[in-house]
Design a protein around this nucleic acid. Sequence first.
DNA 1: AGGGGTACCTGCGGGC
DNA 2: TGCCCGCAGGTACCCC
Length: 289
Amino acid sequence: MPELPEVETVKIELTDKIIGLEISKVALTRTKMLINITPEYFTSRLEGKRIIDISRRGKYIIVHLLPKIRLVFHLGMTGILIYPYMEKFAKNNSGDIKLKHNHFIFNFNDSTQMVFNDVRRFGKVYLVNDVSEIKGIAHLGMEPLVDEFTPDSFFNILKSNSKKRIKSLIMNQKLIAGLGNIYANEALYRANIHPMRMASSLTHNDAVTLHEQIKHVLNKAIQLKGSTISDGAFRNTEGKNGKFKQEILVYARKGKKCLKCQHLIEMVKIEGRSSFYCPVCQKNNVFHQ
DNA sequence: AGGGGTACCTGCGGGC
DNA sequence: TGCCCGCAGGTACCCC
């Protein structure tokens, strides 16, 4: 579920709230979500450490601790970090956060708690001296919201990956870090580019437009604190919904009218992911099967 | 080399 | 009502 804007939202909120706190005790119930280390090592290395910074790289959240060590979260499809955690979140109401999916509990020296809750358990937790030890991070491509991500740098990525379909390319974390299925669909629709087009078919102008729309949808989504498409999905650290859903133009709108031209939105699978597009606005005039 | 299939998981909504 | 199926914001791996 969580893409760059959702992860950035969590980073911003945690930065406001937990920097300076010291971890007093850690409890966990899902050791499979802990990567390459034992629960004993994890808890013993964390207890007594102080949080000095929070950062984000791609879809990873990095908690910087002193004495130096990094606690890293990947939220998978349904992971959420809740702070401050209160029992009301665990009430069994529909759409509420369910107690049985609380897998990690971090207790702080001020008696507050942070919980990592994850329904599908695709999330991952790491504890490393340096984030480069995490392959998924070491191989990440360019951050789309930094100054170095220019239209020309984007066009260069297209040229050196010309045989990939454009949607596969922009969702490839090794090339651009942070776009997932929702924002890839939305950026392509806004740029009038068919998701099946080969990267080689994009003109420089196409690349400029798509670059602009990628930045636009990501920035807008961060402003609106991410997307919550359905119940039981992304929540911010206080358990509240993101509001980008109201800006979604094409994602999950198969069979509905295009908001620009009234034609029906179609869907095709690309690398196993549902890809929504308007066959009129996003003409695939340069198409290799 | 790109991309299909599969695996990892639980939960929801639609069709019958 | 209940059951079965497909689908879900992610990623890693095997295979052709």
